[in-house]
Structures are given as C-alpha cells and as structure tokens.
C-alpha cells in the first residue's frame, strides 16, 4: 500500500502525515504531533521496534531532476556508505539528526504543509531506516 495523499489534500503529491498537526504514533505507543518529533523519538522507536534500524544518511549531492519541482538527492547510507539516490519533490521533508525537519525548499514546505523546515544541504545527516537482520 503506497501512501498517496487524497487529491483534495493541500499537500498534493506529498503524503498526508507531513502536514503540521498530524498525529504520529511512536513505537512505545506515545502520540506526538509531527512538528514536535525529535531525534530521540526516532532512535528510541527503532530500538523498541526490533526489526528496524536507524541509519545515518549523509547528503552527498543535490541535483535538479527532469521532473518539475523535483530533485535527485544522493545519500551515503550507513556504516558502509552505500550510495543511494532518491527523487523527491523539492518540498519533501527529511529529518536531520539534531536539527529536525529539513527540505530542499523550506519555503514551499511551509507553504504546503505548514511544517516549519530548515534548508537541506550537502553534508546534512538524515535519519533513514533499514531492516535490522541482513545476514
């Protein structure tokens, strides 16, 4: 099941849970608003979950995409520094360690989602997930 937002959503193209005020359930059951999440919430939730592991994904490069309003972000993921590229809308928010929500176009994120964001830059370390058991 892919998390498509409804056409009526003002966050067209983005999943609905990034909208300011969205209720997020942490792994221990605690409920928080998306804008109140902190680095520890993700780290602790991953610890509780058992299956998921938090990786540090460093932004290596941000380049324009042929898709309008999209960018291609190259990450260096985890201890192995695996290179992974993702194509996302410029307003798509990532969670940067110790900093919080950040996007390539924070003004647009704030406009569309009311979620306040910092500017995502090369060198930022984002929270990402992998499966724990890869043996």
């Amino acid at each position: 099941t892919s998390p498509h937002s409804s056409p009526s959503s003002p966050s067209a193209g983005l999943p609905p849970f990034f909208m300011k005020g969205s209720i997020i359930q942490l792994a221990d059951g605690e409920l928080k608003r998306v804008e109140d999440l902190r680095t520890e919430d993700f780290v602790q939730s991953a610890e509780v979950s058992g299956e998921l592991k938090i990786d540090s994904s460093t932004v290596e490069r941000i380049e324009c995409s042929r898709t309008p309003n999209a960018v291609i972000i190259q990450f260096s993921v985890g201890e192995n520094k695996a290179q992974v590229c993702v194509e996302v809308l410029v307003e798509y928010p990532f969670f940067v360690f110790g900093q919080g929500w950040s996007s390539c176009c924070p003004d647009r994120t704030t406009q569309l989602l009311a979620l306040s964001c910092a500017k995502l830059s090369v060198g930022d370390v984002c929270i990402s997930l992998t499966l724990k058991s890869l043996k």
Partner: peptide, 19 residues
C-alpha cells in the same frame, strides 16, 4: 483523526545488497 506510524516519516534507504 488518523494516526500514522512513526516509521512512515523517514525514508527506507536500504542499500542494494549485491553478493
């Protein structure tokens, strides 16, 4: 009010494991 799981919010950047 919909409640979303925490892990929806962060990308799943599993590197491709090629053995």
């Amino acid at each position: 009010v919909p409640v979303f799981p925490w892990h929806s919010l962060v990308p799943f950047l599993a590197p491709t494991q090629s053995d």
